[in-house]
Simulated assay, not measured.
Amino acid sequence: MAIVKSKLLKQLSDNYPNFLKKDLEKFTNIILGEIKNALKRGDRVELRGFGVFSTNIQKARISRNPKTGEKVNTPQKKTIHFKMSKDLFKKLNDEEQ
């Protein structure tokens, strides 16, 4: 199950009842916006204990439409790469720390 922004905000408001929901929403929007802007600039985003977001450049290539078999030019594009931290890896795999 994926977590959506509204569920994240609900969990934050449940865990931190002293904060107003609109403040938590602003805080979340600022953090996500800064991550987006940093990736757009080509910077690396490191969240200690969680992981690292970075961008990779996928080269332009000639691909094939699987339905028709027709050759299609695919332009160069940026993709997001995520590498989880060792702490997160251990938590996901129930290893003792």
Rank of each mutant, 00 (worst) to 15 (best):
83 K>H: 10
9 L>R: 15
74 T>R: 08
12 L>Y: 07
10 K>H: 04
4 V>W: 03
14 D>L: 09
59 K>T: 11
10 K>D: 11
87 D>Q: 13
69 G>N: 14
57 I>V: 14
78 K>S: 09
71 K>I: 07
41 R>S: 14
58 Q>F: 01
12 L>D: 04
24 L>C: 05
39 L>D: 12
9 L>Y: 05
96 E>T: 12
7 K>H: 05
18 N>K: 15
72 V>H: 09
37 N>I: 05
65 N>L: 03
59 K>P: 00
83 K>D: 02
71 K>M: 11
75 P>Y: 04
17 P>I: 02
4 V>Y: 05
96 E>L: 06
15 N>H: 13
1 M>R: 15
97 Q>T: 12
35 I>N: 08
79 T>V: 03
73 N>D: 04
60 A>V: 12
21 K>D: 04
50 F>S: 00
48 R>S: 07
58 Q>S: 14
25 E>H: 11
79 T>Y: 00
79 T>I: 12
71 K>Q: 14
11 Q>A: 13
42 G>V: 06
93 N>W: 00
97 Q>R: 15
64 R>W: 11
52 V>A: 13
40 K>P: 02
53 F>E: 06
47 L>G: 03
21 K>C: 05
30 I>Y: 11
38 A>H: 12
4 V>R: 15
63 S>T: 08
72 V>W: 04
89 F>R: 15
52 V>N: 07
33 G>A: 11
94 D>C: 08
26 K>W: 06
51 G>Q: 12
33 G>E: 10
89 F>K: 15
61 R>N: 06
61 R>H: 07
3 I>H: 03
12 L>N: 09
52 V>K: 09
56 N>W: 00
28 T>W: 09
71 K>A: 11
27 F>N: 01
37 N>Y: 00
66 P>L: 03
76 Q>N: 09
5 K>V: 08
22 K>A: 13
88 L>H: 13
68 T>E: 02
86 K>M: 07
94 D>G: 08
88 L>Y: 12
16 Y>W: 08
45 V>G: 06
15 N>L: 14
48 R>M: 03
97 Q>V: 13
44 R>V: 07
79 T>E: 03
37 N>W: 02
16 Y>D: 03
81 H>L: 12
31 I>N: 13
55 T>W: 00
63 S>F: 05
87 D>N: 14
61 R>V: 02
47 L>N: 07
86 K>L: 10
95 E>G: 01
78 K>G: 06
53 F>M: 09
11 Q>S: 13
84 M>Y: 10
1 M>N: 06
80 I>A: 11
53 F>P: 00
95 E>M: 09
31 I>V: 14
90 K>P: 01
2 A>I: 05
66 P>Q: 09
63 S>W: 08
7 K>M: 11
90 K>H: 09
21 K>I: 06
69 G>E: 10
10 K>F: 02
81 H>E: 13
65 N>Q: 08
63 S>M: 03
58 Q>I: 07
58 Q>H: 10
80 I>F: 00
42 G>T: 10
80 I>L: 12
20 L>D: 10
42 G>I: 07
95 E>Q: 14
73 N>P: 01
33 G>N: 12
